[in-house]
Design a protein around this nucleic acid. Structure first.
Length: 649
RNA sequence: GCUCGCAUAGCUCAGGAGGUAGAGCACUUCAUUGGUAAUGAAGAGGUCUCCGGUUCGACUCCGGAUGUGAGCACCA
């Protein structure tokens, strides 16, 4: 006799051990059919799993997040089986679940082509029709090694051999295909309803660039074809919002072969950049930062002293002049220490917050560059806070307030916080790392927000908090950073006089809110799909005449709006009004002002928003008020966001 | 940097057994002065990314370089 408690709190008694599938069947035949797996006392299991004691049991279907993940993981197996049917020489390696789908890496003597993908997809459909039972088996490690060695699957053998020998290993078999897997999996291959193979790419075996390249196939899987279609639609939408495409279309910037990874900003793009920069300048002023500016070229020896050359010399641009080796600065920190070092500093000077819109050059690997998102020349909204150990926490907390305000003004309410701790290659004593990591941990806890730990991803000189924005497509964009550094100040000889007249080494906090202007603008363009809010829009309003009669009136309107500080342009071209409306709508100008004879006579403008909304005819003053309000709103959206409630601002 | 693609007019893209190319939009000119997402006509515009090779002949085939795309790796 055993009692099973279901998620709704109800209980069911069974006379003898019972499988999850049987429990599902005893609840209802519909559920039995939909069952993909089970959750027994918080552990995910196959539906064949037998419950032999009192337990809390939930039936997992594809409506469940876990169920969808299981479906996708099983779909990776399905794909591997199909690949091996079509290409018996292909060796299997690993095939995990990723966001929205899965991939599987194969070792094969040639890359897969798009034609191969459709063939594989077809074979997958066939296997689905065959509705093969998926069975779990447990093998001893040595038996497992033998099994896969006999099949000639040397990658699997390597994986199995790397697992401790005393662990029994589970395998899943479907027809003639067997794979090492923790599971659980769907009960049979008939359970898949909607999947699609999306792309192929090379990937390194075990993620190690010194090892062989495998052929990776990406796929996506959903509970039904409608959701699959929606997903594909979302991908299309994302493609339309691609900042590289919009940057060209809206005339914001360009790249060219002579300066790979470096931006040529056009007037409109540069306007956006300048608006953001003056906004950040203001925010920093209000928060006690002192803006500075430091040289582009700095003798290589400084980078040796700071420790950057040892780790990044390959990625630094260098210039030789007068037999001296200079580096084009890849970062601003060492220069900021030089500013701090001028004059004897007292504890009374701390915290000293130095900020610079610092242009940096880094020789990024060619394959890593991506539009504005990853470039070789970028400008950070960089800042270094020199402080005492006691001041770390409040400085970190203050910075977070600044950061959340900034993000909210740009229209981002969802921020993900991650703490990256000591990497294997690092400088300094572990006790200092303990201290630095603790300081950040406490600062994170103090926000009351959730945060994630990412072990081993810190900078070589200290742990860091990374702030990622969730954009409107649900993607995470890492922008802000806060890093605690106990080493650089010491290496570069920074000292201050403490209360007891001793010389102490200041702690250095490296911080940026936007990260880089380039990347941040890229994120903004994609987040807004190019339709930037009025405060950021390079052109806030366009004034259009209907016939030449109103040209002078339009010029007056332009002048008066410009005098009020608005960014407006005139369009007096000899074109029909519909044509002009269409063009400026496509250029995503927030406000389209039309002036015909009626408006010219009454001193008004007819106002249309880029979305097509007609605000009617209003006086110029009324429009100025409207636009002024809109600009003052920044990009702030829903006032009830969880983030705002939690940080209480 | 690695794997595999891609590179044709300002932009978006066609094209051809290897015989130096085409559309739409944009641009210029002319006509048109029209009230909320495309007025009409004409014109101009190209060393088909670059360097080699094969060939009577290469934009097309082969090799390389550069840039770029999707991933991977990297990211102070």
């Amino acid at each position: 006799m055993l009692t099973v408690t279901l998620p709704d709190g109800s209980t069911r008694d069974y006379q003898q051990p019972v499988s999850v599938a049987e429990i599902a069947r005893s609840i209802g035949s519909g559920l039995a059919k939909a069952a993909l797996a089970g959750r027994v006392d918080d552990e995910l299991v196959d539906i064949s799993h037998v419950v032999d004691g009192d337990a809390a049991v939930a039936i997992i279907t594809d409506r469940d997040a876990d169920g969808l993940e299981i479906l996708r993981h099983s779909c990776a197996h399905l794909m591997a089986q199909a690949v091996q049917r079509l290409f018996p020489e292909a060796q299997v390696t690993i095939g995990p679940v990723i966001a929205d789908g899965f991939y599987y890496d194969f070792a094969y003597n040639r890359p897969f082509t798009p034609e191969d993908l459709s063939a594989i997809e077809k074979t997958m459909q066939e296997i689905v029709k065959e509705d093969l039972i998926v069975e779990r088996e447990v093998l001893e490690r040595d038996d497992a090694v033998k099994l896969f060695r006999d099949m000639g699957e040397r990658y699997k053998v390597e994986i199995i051999e790397s697992i401790p020998s005393n662990e029994p290993l589970s395998f899943y078999r479907q027809g003639d295909f067997i794979d090492l897997c923790r599971g659980p999996h769907v009960p049979s291959t008939g359970k898949f309803k909607a999947f699609k193979l999306t792309s192929v790419a090379g990937a390194y075996w075990r993620g190690d660039s010194s090892r062989e390249t495998l052929q990776r196939i990406y796929g996506t899987a959903w509970p039904n074809s409608k959701e699959l279609r929606l997903h594909l639609l979302r991908l299309e939408e994302a493609e339309k919002r691609d900042h590289r495409k919009l940057g060209k279309h809206l005339g914001l910037f360009h790249f060219q072969e002579e300066a790979p990874g470096m931006v040529f900003w056009h007037p409109k793009g540069w306007t956006i950049y300048q608006v953001i920069q003056s906004y950040m300048k203001k925010v920093q002023d209000e928060n006690g930062y002192l803006e500075i500016n430091t040289p582009q070229l700095v003798d290589f020896s400084l980078w040796e002293k700071s420790g950057h050359a040892a780790k990044f010399s390959e990625e630094m641009f260098t210039v030789e002049s007068d037999n001296r080796q200079y580096a084009i600065k890849p970062m601003n920190c060492p220069c900021h220490v030089q500013v701090f070092n001028q004059g004897l500093k007292s504890y009374r000077d701390l915290p000293m917050r130095l900020a610079e819109f610092g242009s940096c050059h880094r020789y990024e690997p060619s394959g890593s560059m991506h539009g504005l998102m990853r470039v070789r020349n970028f400008v950070q909204d960089d800042g270094h806070i020199f402080c005492s150990e006691e001041q770390i926490q409040s400085e970190v907390a203050d910075f977070m307030q600044l950061l959340f305000k900034v993000y909210r003004d740009f229209g981002f309410n969802d921020v993900l916080l991650r703490l990256s701790t000591r990497p294997s290659k690092r400088v300094g004593a572990d006790e200092l790392w303990d201290q630095a990591e603790d300081a950040l941990r406490q600062a994170l806890d103090a926000t009351g927000l959730d945060w994630e730990l990412v072990p081993g991803e810190g900078a070589f000189y200290g742990p860091k908090i990374e702030y990622s924005l969730r954009d409107c497509m649900g993607r995470l964009q890492q922008c802000g950073t806060m890093q605690v550094d106990f080493f650089t100040a010491e290496r570069l000889g920074a000292r201050y006089v403490a209360e007891d007249n001793s010389r102490r080494i200041p702690v250095m906090l490296h911080r940026a809110a936007l990260g880089s202007f380039e990347r941040f603008i890229g994120v903004l363009i994609e987040h807004y799909g190019g339709a930037l809010p009025a405060w950021l829009a390079p052109v806030q309003a366009v004034i259009m005449n209907i016939t030449d009669n109103q040209a002078n009136y339009c010029r007056k309107v332009e002048e008066s709006l410009k005098n009020k500080g608005f960014r407006v342009v005139l369009d007096l071209r000899n074109e029909k009004i519909g044509f002009k409306i269409r063009e400026h709508t496509m250029q995503k100008t927030p406000y389209l002002l039309v002036a015909g004879d009626r408006e010219a006579q009454s001193g008004t403008v007819s106002v249309r928003k880029r979305g097509g909304e007609d605000l009617g005819t209003m006086t110029l003053d009324a429009f100025c008020g409207h636009l002024g309000d809109d600009v003052a709103e920044y990009g702030r959206t829903s006032s009830d966001s969880a983030l705002q409630q939690q940080v209480g601002t």
